[in-house]
Design a protein around this nucleic acid. Structure first.
Lengths: 219, 219
DNA sequence: CCGTTGTGTAAACAATTGCTGACTTGAGGT
DNA sequence: ACCTCAAGTCAGCAATTGTTTACACAACGG
């Protein structure tokens, strides 16, 4: 095959040498998870090879199969991690404007930052049924929590609120994806302050911020 | 390798038998382009194999290399096609609400419809420099045309208008992607009428539809 | 009628993929 | 000190990838 070198944005953690890595299974598991998460999120599942992940983590390839059974297993573990992280993030009930604030920070973060990677992972598919289920469930919980907090007055059906929440999520993820996968300017280089305004308006419109209530123009 | 069968949403055009396909080079070229476009858009570049594309088109694998030099070449051709199609689509200057109408129809179309596939292609990357350039240029033209038509009064810098146009595009593409790659409900099964409302509001906010001017609630 | 040219097919190639087995190596308990 | 077993390495397999090469078939001009 001659697939071009993966679109690696980040040349990977330079784990070229760790003079004497302590033999800790849990540490290497975390290293593999972190490396895999980044690669899967940025390059996609199919374009990511287990050898690259192992190299990023500074670990032997065989350990992926030892600790996660397969490439699929590693992918699922990444997805599960993102799910937990996303749940934890907005565990306590917060106000609508707080949620919007959170999302803005999540997506306006560097396109290759940890926050963005989490959202990107939810767009990546391995074609595996079980992995797709995890992904769908995570998105579903995310959307429903958002819909529950949305500020729509009575008269709007629950389904419509969930739909609008899902649209809000898709808008946020679309932005992150476009920023990370294409070098589109000025979008890619935009700062949080640049994005907070329009993004706040979009989320406000979708989640039903009362017309008067201005979304905080900047962080 | 043991990559699971590609996430093929569509089992592909059942080109199993064409009793006597006329030997027309141009026809097969188009067939390959159409099949490749669908696969690339829905499954991504890396997850799509040339053999599957050829099978979809009902032709031999070697013809891909004959007519497009390589898998990369075929991908570029798909991208170029999308670029032309997108340019053609909004060639004549139209009003802001017309543009919004067009986008709504483009994205609210079936997630695996031709219109949606075009947008999805712009999110797919092969890692090749030249292909990525085509993609970026297409997006750039698209965004700038949209920004030029946006209804913002003076006082807003040009850069901000382009940024907002790019955000509009990313929101639209995010929605299409989420609809096609996850089975998220009710988003995936939503009809044009369901989506036209919220989508119109989002695009209106980003592109500067004057507050009074209600976006047509439905097609 | 035959040959030439363009179109399509088949079989094989080298490279890469995910994965496995047998092996070293190291750390901790007694 | 030694022994044990988990942690890590290495070399290689079987399958799949993109691509190429040599060949078969159909149309068309002479």
């Amino acid at each position: 095959m001659n697939t071009p070198p993966p679109p690696t944005i980040t040349p990977a953690a330079d784990a070229a040498f760790s003079p004497a890595r302590p033999r800790d299974a849990d540490t290497t598991r975390q290293a593999l998870l972190a490396a895999a998460r980044r690669r899967f999120a940025l390059d996609g599942y199919a374009a990511t090879t287990v050898r690259v992940i192992a190299a990023d983590a500074g670990v032997n390839v065989a350990l992926i199969n030892r600790y996660f059974s397969s490439k699929e297993g590693l992918f699922e573990a990444c997805l599960a991690h993102v799910g937990r992280e996303l749940d934890r993030q907005d565990a306590e009930p917060s106000s609508l404007t707080q949620i919007i604030e959170t999302i803005i920070h999540q997506v306006a973060d560097s396109p290759s930052g940890e926050q963005s990677l989490q959202l990107l992972m939810l767009l990546r598919s391995s074609g595996d049924e079980r992995a797709d289920l995890i992904r769908r469930n995570t998105l579903q919980r995310f959307a429903e929590r958002m819909a529950a907090t949305s500020g729509w007055p009575a008269g709007r059906s629950g389904d419509d609120r969930v739909l609008r929440a899902q649209l809000a999520i898709s808008a946020a993820m679309g932005m992150v994806l476009l920023r990370s996968s294409t070098g589109l300017e000025p979008l890619t280089s935009a700062t949080v302050d640049d994005l907070a305004g329009p993004l706040g308006e979009v989320l406000g419109v979708l989640l039903g911020v009362p017309p008067g209530t201005a979304v905080p123009p900047r962080a």
